[in-house]
Design a protein around this nucleic acid. Structure first.
Lengths: 120, 120
DNA sequence: CTTTATCTACGAATTGTTTCGTAATCAAAT
DNA sequence: ATTTGATTACGAAACAATTCGTAGATAAAG
């Protein structure tokens, strides 16, 4: 089950912060152009879908991500490689590296990673 | 303006084949679980949105992509890096490379690409 | 105890996407 | 000319995602 765009933004906060109230998720989201109850509703829907669990023992419910960051990211990645890059991982990677956004430091990280791949 | 999932599938065909009729796009799409008029309608909407142009001089209209493959892919990539990878290109790339899907040949391509980046 | 603030629940409106049925048009074949 | 087949146009239904208003519950502050 693939999270929607908005759900993904909420998951990012939950993954980074750990268990959180709706309020703190709302505050982390710079997406302040939407109301509090919108985020609340979204998180309730995510609960219905089984993406998050929640502790309702106190008035303020605490939500926690049930799906893993790695799995979810991979899911998006695979879909993207298929529908946007026609199945070619290499093309995606090279276009990502061609981006101006990628710093020297990141390039070095990637090279190191490739070396470590070789050694296995 | 970001193409939807279905629009992306159609664009893939137009990019690969060049100018095409609705019929040939429909046939290329293994997405045969939807009807012909569905694809027709989607392509008409894409025309309204300005994603494609069309030649209506003969009965069978010929559609051509107006947005470039590179730009569109980059758009998706940027969005993905932001919403799924919290802005880190390196993490996306490393996860992509960690995939089993990536062949030795592709890895070599990427190494070569990194070298060519260095020389500029 | 009463007021105030915060929270949840829930329904409903809105918006966007996908789907297809039907009618009209056109061209080719009979 | 008439039929047949392929095409476009168009409206509308079905579905999904997003948004928010309002009501009711609960806790904290006065």
């Amino acid at each position: 089950m693939k999270p929607t765009e908005s759900e993904m933004e909420i998951l990012q906060v939950l993954w980074k912060q750990g268990p959180s109230s709706v309020r703190t998720v709302f505050e982390q989201l710079d997406k302040k152009d939407v109301g509090y109850t919108t985020i609340l509703k979204l998180m309730q829907i995510m609960h219905e879908k089984g993406m998050v669990d929640r502790d309702t023992s106190s008035k303020t419910h605490i939500y926690v991500a049930l799906i893993s960051k790695e799995n979810t990211q991979n899911q998006f990645l695979d879909k993207m490689i298929d529908t946007v890059y026609n199945g070619s991982t290499a093309r995606l990677v090279m276009q990502a590296l061609g981006n101006e956004r990628t710093s020297k430091k990141e390039i070095e990280e990637i090279k190191a990673f490739l070396k470590s791949l070789e050694n296995n």
